[in-house]
């Protein structure tokens, strides 16, 4: 039964991936990609990665899909723009080489060692000392906390890059296009009803992350989605990026993370170490500090470069 479900998933995934790459219409390709992301989340469940499934659904399929859909609609690309001539003779070598790489990888999959090397025992042995019960949270915020810190910085760097793409007159202005919708329409209605629920769910996902699948990224994505929904319905406008509160809120999370790291130097003898007995509270404090920063940065990355000046 399990094998059958997996096989079905595998076939569907490959079919949708092929559709995404080969479909003639841009919109169809993007929609295919979103469906593909949702299936991928199921595949992660099958590989017992509930945390990854949540992240994939939220970021990989959800936010990325939204980003691409928005781009496709702004480019309003006609379906067959790519029918240019000279390249067709390179299609065959491209296909052959891609297939060769694929084949080599497949051989690698079967050439992996019989007894798989794993760090699971190490994690299990040290999990108790981190006071959290979700092993992935332990890896993300204790054993390899540096990667998580860098990941927050990656997002900020991408945001600097995106903002630097505004045109000079709009520098410092509001990102994205102003959205209008009927004040009593269904979208505005949803944008009023859904966010309170979304915020509760997002906070729940965030809170439960210490012990069960979930965490700051998945929670932040939900919160960002609620913010974007409100913006989409035209109930509020994105803040101009020159606002000091916005900029301070963006960097507060990572700075707090670094501060806790140096606190560990004093109290536990190493950067990013936590004193015994305070591990869980500190981890939750870091996540709590990161949550608003991540929510903002995810939302702002989706909105893109500033496109408008200071107009109301």
């Amino acid at each position: 039964m399990m094998t059958f479900v997996n096989l079905l998933l595998a076939v569907l995934l490959l079919a949708l991936a092929a559709w995404t790459t080969l479909a003639r219409n841009m919109f169809a390709a993007v929609v295919g990609f979103i469906a593909y992301g949702a299936l991928l989340a199921l595949a992660w469940v099958q590989l017992s990665g509930i945390d990854i499934a949540l992240t994939e659904a939220a970021i990989g399929s959800g936010l990325t899909g939204l980003l691409l859909l928005n781009a496709a609609s702004r480019l309003h690309v006609n379906a067959n723009a790519g029918g240019n001539t000279g390249r067709s003779r390179l299609r065959v070598p491209a296909a052959l080489l891609s297939a060769a790489v694929s084949g080599a990888l497949m051989l690698c999959v079967f050439a992996l060692p019989e007894t798989p090397p794993t760090l699971a025992p190490d994690v299990a042995a040290n999990l108790a000392s981190t006071e959290v019960r979700n092993p992935i949270t332990a890896v993300l915020l204790a054993f390899r906390a540096m990667d998580t810190l860098l990941e927050a910085i990656v997002l900020l760097f991408a945001l600097i890059g995106v903002w630097s793409l505004s045109s000079d007159p709009h520098w410092g202005g509001r990102p994205g296009l102003r959205q209008y919708s009927e004040p009593n329409g269904i979208l505005a209605y949803t944008a009023r009803v859904l966010p309170p629920i979304g915020i509760v769910v997002g906070a729940y996902i965030f809170w439960t992350g210490a012990d069960y699948p979930g965490g700051k990224f998945q929670g932040a994505t939900l919160l960002a989605a609620m913010w974007l929904l409100v913006l989409m319905a035209g109930l509020a406008d994105a803040p101009p990026i020159r606002r000091t509160w916005l900029r301070v809120a963006l960097v507060a999370g990572p700075l707090a993370f670094i501060a806790v790291g140096f606190l560990g130097l004093q109290t536990a003898g190493a950067f990013l170490a936590y004193p015994e007995g305070f591990v869980k509270p500190l981890i939750i404090a870091i996540e709590l500090a990161l949550l608003p920063s991540l929510t903002l940065v995810l939302g702002l990355l989706l909105l893109g470069a500033p496109l408008r000046g200071e107009e109301p």
Binding site: I186, L187, Y189, T190, V193, L194
Partner: peptide, 10 residues
């Protein structure tokens, strides 16, 4: 149900 109803409306 809620989101489905809204989206199909839109």
């Amino acid at each position: 149900l809620l989101s489905g109803a809204c989206v199909s409306q839109l």
